[in-house]
Amino acid sequence: MSDLLAALLLGILEGITEFLPISSTGHLLIAQHWLGPRSDLFNIVIQAGAILAISLVYRQRLWALAHGLHRPETRDYALKIGAAFAVTAAVGIPVRLLGWELPETVTPVAWALILGGVWMLLAERVAERRPDRTEATWTVAVLVGLAQVLAGVFPGTSRSAAAIFMAMLAGLSRRSAAAEFAFLAGIPTMFAASAYALVEYAATPGAPREDWGELAVAFAAATATGFATVRWLLGYISRHRFTPFAIYRFCLGALLLWLLPAGQ
Rank of each mutant, 00 (worst) to 15 (best):
H240L: 12
A177V: 03
V118I: 14
L5I: 14
I114W: 00
V45S: 06
V57S: 14
L35F: 03
T189K: 03
H240R: 13
V149E: 04
L260I: 11
A202M: 10
F42E: 03
V45L: 10
L172Y: 01
A221Y: 03
L198D: 15
R96I: 10
A246G: 10
L4E: 14
G92L: 00
M120L: 06
A177S: 12
V95K: 09
A193R: 00
M120A: 02
A162S: 08
R239M: 12
A162K: 06
E14Q: 12
L10I: 08
V217I: 13
S158T: 04
L65M: 11
I247F: 13
A163V: 06
Y58H: 14
R125E: 01
L52H: 00
L143I: 13
A216R: 09
Y196N: 09
V144F: 04
A7L: 09
A224L: 09
F154R: 04
A84D: 11
L52I: 09
G15A: 04
L255K: 13
R209H: 12
E210C: 05
D132I: 14
G15N: 07
L260K: 09
T105L: 08
E14M: 10
A89C: 10
A207W: 15
W258V: 14
V217P: 05
E18L: 00
A48K: 01
A6S: 11
R129T: 14
A246Y: 01
R130L: 03
P155N: 01
W63I: 15
L97C: 12
S24W: 05
P244T: 07
T134H: 10
T25I: 09
H70K: 15
L20Q: 07
K80N: 06
E14T: 15
A228L: 12
W34F: 12
P37V: 02
Y248E: 07
L143F: 10
A78G: 15
R130E: 15
G36C: 06
A163E: 06
R239G: 12
E124G: 04
I16N: 00
G263Y: 10
S160K: 05
S238F: 09
P208D: 00
G206I: 06
R61P: 09
G99M: 08
Q32G: 12
F227W: 14
A112N: 07
L79S: 06
L13P: 05
V118W: 07
S55T: 15
